[in-house]
Design a binder for these strands. Structure first.
Length: 579
RNA sequence: CGGAGCAUGGCUCAGUUUGGUAGAGCGCCUGCUUCGGGAGCAGGAGACCGUGGGUUCAAAUCCCGCUGCUCCGACCA
């Protein structure tokens, strides 16, 4: 591949690997610290990184596996622009919907552009022009490319950057069944990708967010420090992200009496109490007796959402239940207009002319407590049906680990942590319809294409691997990801015999196409060994004392295992380890 | 965007309270001695103390503005 090049630098004395002895202040999580310390990446600005030679090699290792598996699955690689005209985004409405996360810029003619955070619009535009017949469907096009998102809070190095490498694929179909087939094909492809990369992962049901569409699944690399919570049922195969985990059973809170006698409504003065906790404490009861009332604004007007006081409302679920796209907490002004009372005293009783959505658990509350829609007042002994009604009742809260699996209704959730590295979506016609991406079927009928979309965070995957595999000395790369598989370390570079053997094995390795590194630096053994371990090279060939007997050491990073072999057998041994 | 904090050689930090000629460790360069898990000695280079203004005889230090970065909450691969 690089035949034209005279030599690639794989001598440590020449390689740019600025390792650091101390943890950089900017890093918080282990993987970020290690990538910085071991000289893989450097920060340029918040969430924007340079990949140094080692880092870039790892990135390419991920990309290559992804590319091979995608090609094998029948997808075709393309390369789309990063700089995108606003018109396309206006066509789907996402120019307005995407919000502040979209990097927007103007050209010299004051025309609007953005830096691509994802490419549904671009690919759909391409396909609607390039493909007109059912004969040319289905297709799956993908690219590996830099994406831009003006994240609210860039974090943890490559985990959440503002500029990051991503593989995104888009498939186009003539039927739902065909999409289903490709979705399964991609599911399998993703499994083999993450298996080849040597990662422990789980697949969970997920919310599809801004990308939209219906069903989607996330691939999570398991790591205790992961940002995501996965709700996994121990009794069946159900697994979901925190965002989308369902609630299997609606029970009354433990503290509620089983008695059903309804007391009469009572208004109480609760001056100075605003939060649920304050109100519950003031009235000497627990938060699960209260009804939390939240006012939201949507594109179809304000709505009132009710959840039990000890539950957290899940906006993604609320969006789904309401069937709205735009959802945000109402301003105090709107709250006052809707409830005629200041923030902190809202309640469903007596509200008119506004849609009310209640969580499944809310109607079960007897003699509950909620705001009186009157400053400094709450009402007690509120019961559903008698005192208020909801227009919609559904699952709109976050699941808790005490909740029951919605699938088998038996297991209580285990909560694991993970890092989202892949996401597959069934988009349906969300984009193709708006953008008139159509084809002619065999009956000369115009039909809208059905789409799927499949992403993998390349840099994030690389960093997730570190998060999953490190020790006190540094990174322990899985073989596939390691920037170099083998490092040759002459213990004392001032002994000519050691250097000779080192050079010999090095050139044998290069001749055999092994990704091999020679630590030819004139440094003490300890420094070289520490550096190579920090970098995480899987196999070390240590040339030292044993050379007197014509032997070298082969030591594994993973478990510290050492094997003494005759120097002329070293290469065979390495090849066996790599096979 | 709300809350907290930080900004001083390449890296990690001290110095700021109580203004008075900019420090340490690591790294880097030179030489000597060392040489199997971050060596020792000697010599040396390297900083307009984030930025703009103000107070003062005098500001890294006090005051005001700005910017950048990190962390905690709502978004995403």
């Amino acid at each position: 591949m690089f035949k034209g090049r005279k030599k690639t630098i794989v001598r440590m004395s020449q390689l740019v690997v600025p390792t650091l002895r101390e943890d950089p202040r900017e890093a918080e999580v282990v993987s970020h610290k290690l990538l910085l310390r071991a000289g893989f990446i450097r920060r340029l600005a918040a969430g924007i990184y340079t990949y140094l030679p080692l880092g870039f090699r790892v990135l390419n290792n991920v990309s290559n596996v992804v590319r091979q598996e995608m090609d094998k699955a029948g997808a075709q690689e393309v390369f789309m622009p990063s700089l995108l005209p606003a018109e396309l985004w206006k066509e789907t409405g996402r120019w307005d919907m995407y919000g502040k996360e979209l990097f927007r810029i103007k050209d010299r003619h004051e025309r609007d552009f953005c830096l691509g955070p994802t490419h549904e619009e671009v690919i759909t535009d391409l396909v609607r022009n390039a493909i007109r017949s059912y004969r040319n469907l289905p297709v799956n096009l993908y690219q590996i490319q830099t994406k831009f998102r003006d994240e609210i809070r860039p974090r943890f190095g490559l985990m959440r950057g503002r500029e990051f490498m991503m593989k995104d694929a888009y498939s186009f179909h003539t039927s739902q069944e065909d999409l289903e087939k490709e979705y399964q094909n991609m599911y399998k492809t993703y499994c083999s990708i993450f298996e080849r990369l040597g990662l422990k992962y789980r697949v969970v049901e997920a919310d599809s967010g801004l990308i939209g569409g219906g069903f989607s699944q996330e691939f999570m690399v398991l790591a205790d420090t992961g940002e995501e919570e996965l709700f996994v049922c121990p009794k069946c195969d159900y697994a979901a992200s925190r965002e989308s985990a369902g609630v299997g059973e609606f029970r009354v809170a433990d503290s509620q009496s089983t008695g059903t006698s309804k007391n009469a409504l009572k208004e109480v003065h609760t001056s100075g109490t605003k939060t649920i906790e304050e109100v519950a404490a003031f009235l000497k009861t627990s938060p699960d007796k209260t009804i939390k009332t939240l006012i939201y604004e949507t594109e179809t007007g304000p709505v009132v959402a009710l959840v039990r006081g000890d539950h957290a409302l899940n906006e993604a679920k609320l969006k789904r239940v309401l069937g709205v796209q735009d959802l945000r907490l109402a301003s105090e002004k709107v709250i006052e207009k809707v409830t005629k009372a200041p923030l902190g005293f809202s309640g469903p009783v007596g509200l008119k002319g506004i849609k009310i959505v209640a969580d499944n658990c809310v109607p079960l509350i007897e003699n509950g407590i909620t705001g009186a829609n009157k400053k400094d007042h709450h009402i007690m002994d509120v019961s559903y049906g008698r005192d208020y009604k909801a227009d919609l009742i559904g699952d709109i809260r976050f699941a808790l680990c005490s909740d029951v699996c919605p699938k088998c209704k038996k297991g209580k959730f285990d909560v694991l942590r993970g890092i989202e590295v892949g996401h597959i979506f069934k988009l349906g016609t969300k984009y193709s319809e708006k953008m008139k991406c159509v084809y002619l079927d065999e009956n000369n009928q115009e039909k809208t294409m059905i789409m799927g979309c499949y992403g993998i965070g390349i840099g994030r995957t690389a960093q997730a691997a570190v998060e999953q595999s490190f020790d006190k000395d540094g990174i322990v790369w899985p073989m596939t990801l390691a920037p170099y598989k083998v490092a040759i370390i002459p213990v004392n570079s001032s002994i000519p015999e050691q250097m000779e053997v080192a050079e010999k094995i090095y050139s044998q390795g290069r001749g055999a196409g092994v990704a091999i590194l020679l630590d030819d630096r004139e440094l003490r053994a300890g420094v070289k060994l520490k550096d190579i371990d920090l970098i995480g090279i899987p196999i070390k060939v240590i040339i030292g004392k044993a050379l007197k007997d014509g032997k070298v050491e082969i030591k594994l990073r993973k478990n510290g295992e050492v094997k003494l072999v005759p120097e002329d057998r070293a290469m065979d041994e390495i090849k066996a380890l790599l096979a």
